[in-house]
Every structure is written in C-alpha cells, then in structure tokens.
Design a protein around this nucleic acid. Structure first.
Lengths: 212, 212
DNA sequence: ATATGATGTGAATGGACATTCACATCAAGG
DNA sequence: CCTTGATGTGAATGTCCATTCACATCATAT
C-alpha cells in the first residue's frame, strides 16, 4: 500500500503531520486511527508500530503546535528591539497561523484535551503558559525601557493580547469566512496598544486610577 | 423506570437540561442519547419521542444557552443607565455564568458545532452575534451620551469585550482552578475600560491617531 | 367505559472505532 | 547467505453508539 518503508522517526512525524492536517480540514471528531493511517498511505494497525495509542498521537500533534507557536515568538522578537513592533508582528503571525491552521484552536479547545486524559490537559496548559509567558516577557522588557505603561499589569495584558484574536477567530470561522477578521484585529489592536504602550515621547498623561 | 409520564413540552426541557448538565460535567464527547436518557430516568428510545435525533437535541441545548446570555444582557442593562456600569456588570455575570456552566464555551467551541451540521453552526453564529450586538448597543448608546470615546470602533470593542474573558476562562479550566480568574478579569477590565470609556469629566485627551 | 393518541419500553440492527495478533516483508550486519 | 529486528499487513474482536420498531401503558375526551 505504502510506497516504501521508512524509519520510525520519519514515519512518526508523517503521522503527526497527517493528523494535524486532518484536524484542520475536518475537525477533531473525524480523525480516527483509520483516517490518519489512510492519509499516510498505510494500514491502521501500522500506526501502533509508532504510537502506543491515540493519546500518544494527539500528544505528538500538540508538539507540532508548540513548535509553531515558539517559532512565531522567536520570529517576532527578531524583527525589532521595539516591544510594540514585536508584539504587533506577533499578532500578525498569530493571525496568519490560525487562519491557515484552524487545527490549533480546534485541538486546544477540544473536548479531548479539556476533558480527556490529564496528561493532554497538562501538556496544553504548558504550551499556552509558555506562549503567554513569552508575550509577558516582551511587555516586561518594554516596561523596563519605559515603552510600556508602568501601571499596566503585564500578566493580565498578556492574556488580553490573546483575547484580541480569539473571539475574532471564532466568529470568523462560524461566519464561514464572511467576517472581516483582519479589520477586527486591526481595530482591537488599536484599543489595546493605546492603553498598553507609552507614546514615543513618554509624556502621555491620563490619570489612571483616581477616577472611580 | 421513570417516576411518571410527563407532557412532551416538559420532557423536552428536562432532556435538554440533562444534556446541558452532562456537558458541564463531562464534556461533549461523553454525552450520548443513552447517557442523557439515563440521567432523565428514561430509556434511550424514549428520547426519540421528543427529538428527531441528536442534532435536534443539541439545537435545543443551544436554545438554553441563548436564554442565559439574553438574560444576562437584560439584567446588566437594568442595573444602571451608565454604560460603563452596565458593561462592568455584564462582565461579572458572564464570568459567573461561565464558571458555573462550563458547558457553554464547551459546546460553542465544540467540534460538533464548528464542523458538524451547518444548522448548528448558523444557530451558534446567531446566538453570538445577538450577544455581541447587545454589547455593541451599550457602547453605541454610550457614545451618544459621550461616555464612550468617540474614536473607539464599537464593533471591535464589543468583540474585544469577549476577549477579556475568553482566554482567562480557558486557562482557568486547564489549570484546574488554580488560576486566579477573578483577578485576571479585574486587571484586563481596567485596561479595557481605561481606553474605551471617557472619564466622567469628559475631558480626557490623549491624541489617538497621530502618534505613529 | 372505551377508544385514541401520546408517552414509554426492550430488543434488535448496523456502523464506526480502537486495539490486538499472527503473519509477511524488508534492511542491515554477522 | 542468513539471522534478526524493525516495519507493514489483513483479519478479527469487543465496545459504544444512534436509530428503529413492535409492543405496552397511561390520560383523557367522548
């Protein structure tokens, strides 16, 4: 059936990628050992030569997602030393990533992860914490050099950063593409940026806490 | 098996509620006609006296969710005529709702809805649009009376409002409750509020667009 | 009181799926 | 060449599930 035999290391990745792509295309519910095997060009039982079971396969897919997110983080940090530019670029990359790989939110929010094995949940938690931690680091560094408002809570701001995109992506998917996600992100970013970042001159004043 | 016979109208709701509670407790994947029937105290085939199939049942659960969200919206609007207070209260209600009924995000983001029947997807889309529309209305009214910054895009701001809570709820659930969701919401709201709402005096100035 | 329609039951059917196992085939080293 | 371990195959098993159907039972209107 398959063209050739391949070393386990290569097959393992092939299988994980196939599963990832299937989730993108059809959602989590429809991936089965059978469907993944078929996509790789192999018989279902062959999967078990490389994974102990479905759980281990899903863990492997989470690994792929982790890679993508980390890659984005690195790329964003490399673009500029300006925290605002870094974060803006990260938002751009994140938007792109999710548009092209619906599998990511799909899997991360899926039932299998959220209610399935504790191991999957912990793994997912770790991945998200790492990513959000990266965002937070950008903000904290920005604070040090005075580019980020000192009175902004960086933990909260890093999560809210995710909130810029998450609802938009959801609606976008439900609307079957008719919703203008790019515009939404743009406008939401403006709101976010204006509050989180200091102005270049560093002389913005707007009395934050003593008004209520 | 069941204590008594009940009219279809009542049973229908019982069944929908049972399904909703099961989703809360165990996630979507584990609800089956069997499990729902068992929870109601009835035999699986009895479900089909009231619903054409599983799809119709899920639609019915979506109806329950719609009710909750609309109820929150009404209650929030009734608390005050101040848009800021209304929105703050809505955030509070929303937090509470999601903490107590994990089923809501669970179902709305589930595979069954996102990749299942187009009908479910449209229904969900409608529910969310209605809810977000309500938020937007609050913001637009606020603009009219000068309580909301005129240069804020209300469509974007209403979606970002959802973004205050959504990522926090996700992390909270993954962390198995150890994450302090209340504090996160509080801080994120501060960021949001400060940018979206005008100050009581209406004299805030911070040059929005000419800085980059 | 009895006919009728609504509600509930138990058994049965068929499909999808994860997993296992005995066997086949290949690649590489002795 | 031939042994050995890794990779792949096809069939089989057992479980869970949605759905259907013939039959039972109740509620009520006539």
């Amino acid at each position: 059936m398959s063209k050739e035999r391949v070393s386990s290391k290569v097959r393992k990745r092939q299988i994980a990628v196939a599963a990832f792509e299937l989730i993108c295309a059809q959602g989590i519910k429809r991936i089965s050992i059978s469907s993944v095997a078929h996509r790789v060009g192999v018989v279902p039982s062959a999967i078990y030569r490389h994974f102990r079971g479905k759980l281990e396969l899903l863990e492997s897919v989470l690994g792929l997602i982790e890679e993508s997110l980390q890659r984005n983080l690195s790329e964003a940090r490399a673009t500029s030393c300006e925290p605002e530019v870094q974060l803006r670029h990260l938002l751009f990359l994140h938007t792109k990533l999710i548009r092209e790989n619906v599998a990511i939110p799909r899997l991360l929010f899926s039932d299998d992860v959220q209610f399935g094995d504790a191991r999957l949940r912990k793994r997912t938690y770790g991945i998200l914490r790492e990513y959000i931690g990266g965002v937070r680091k950008i903000l904290d560094e920005g604070k040090e050099v005075g580019r980020v408002q000192a009175n902004v809570d960086s933990a909260a701001a890093s999560l809210l950063f995710i909130g810029i995109l998450q609802p938009a992506a959801l609606i976008w998917h439900l609307s079957e593409g008719s919703f203008d996600v790019t515009r939404q992100i743009e406008k939401a970013w403006e709101i976010y940026r204006a509050q989180v970042f200091s102005f270049p001159t560093g002389t913005r004043k707007n009395g934050q806490e003593d008004t209520r």
